[in-house]
């Protein structure tokens, strides 16, 4: 494969232009992710940051990593996030009042600590270390080089992570399907159970609303299916004034009918 790259440390003009256009956009997107009102917008801005990172990876010869970043992170992980956000509907109307005491100072402390840790780690790894680029590593081809490393030097970590993924997938399946351990009762069995209940009055189930209504005045509460007054039908104003009339709870047990 021919070597079309420059010496390490030199950036071609087009790549510099691309960097200086995309990098501020990525930073703005990352900041926007924190400050936008809607959760879905935040997720989309995060997806944009991931795509920008992938473009930078590809620009620096890490082709496989960049493409896989898009396929896995943007295409699968962020899609999952979006599904959850869309279905659950996290809203900005959620209360920002914190229930846990001391959470804010603790979280600020933890964030500063984490930031310091990351900065120190990265600077230890990169400051003063010579960049050698990926030309030598990619001498056999980017994919081949990764495959070589992954299946010889890092095969143990690779297999452990894949075992973890399989466990997670199995766990998700078990959690999702855990309710169907009993078989559902068939229609015939349900029907028999209805007629063998405490009294035949329960055979047809509870009546619909309004069946036992005796009044529809505004100062008489409506009845629930078991005959007791419905609390939501009581007018608070009338109740406060003492103007609500009572309605006796309706008894469902069948009275003895005298045979002549």
């Amino acid at each position: 494969m021919s070597n079309l790259a420059l010496e390490v440390g030199r950036t071609l003009q087009p790549e510099a232009v691309m960097f200086w256009i995309l990098a501020p956009l990525a930073v703005a997107a990352a900041l926007g992710m924190l400050f936008v009102k809607k959760a879905v917008h935040s997720a989309l801005l995060l997806a944009w940051v991931m795509i920008t990172l992938a473009i930078f990876y590809i620009a620096q010869d890490a082709l496989f990593l960049g493409i896989v970043q898009i396929i896995v992170y943007t295409g699968a992980v962020m899609m999952l996030f979006l599904f959850i956000l869309m279905l659950v509907g996290v809203d900005s109307s959620d209360s920002l009042v914190e229930n846990i005491r001391g959470q804010r100072p603790a979280s600020i402390f933890a964030a500063i600590g984490l930031g310091g840790l990351i900065i120190s780690l990265i600077s230890r790894a990169t400051l003063g270390v010579e960049t050698i680029g990926l030309q030598d590593a990619n001498s056999a081809g980017n994919v081949q080089a990764i495959a070589q490393e992954l299946f010889t030097k890092y095969v143990w970590a690779f297999e452990v992570v894949s075992a973890l993924l399989i466990t997670a997938a199995l766990g998700a399946m078990v959690l999702a399907h855990s309710t169907s351990t009993k078989s559902r009762t068939a229609q015939r069995d349900q029907s028999i159970a209805r007629f063998r209940g405490a009294s035949l009055a329960t055979a047809a189930g509870l009546p619909g609303s309004g069946v036992y209504a005796l009044h529809n005045a505004v100062d008489v509460p409506a009845l629930l299916p078991d005959g007791s007054p419905a609390p939501t039908s009581i007018s608070a104003t009338l109740d406060a004034r003492g103007d609500m009339l009572s309605s006796k709870p309706f008894e469902l047990e069948a009275k003895e009918v005298e045979e002549d």
Binding site: L44, F64, I67, I71, T74, V143
Partner: peptide, 20 residues
């Protein structure tokens, strides 16, 4: 060198259009 993976990546991003 990862041309076909690129097409798969583009297809993954295209799903965003539908979901959004």
């Amino acid at each position: 060198p990862v041309g076909v993976l690129y097409v798969l990546a583009i297809a993954s991003v295209g799903v965003y259009g539908i979901v959004l």
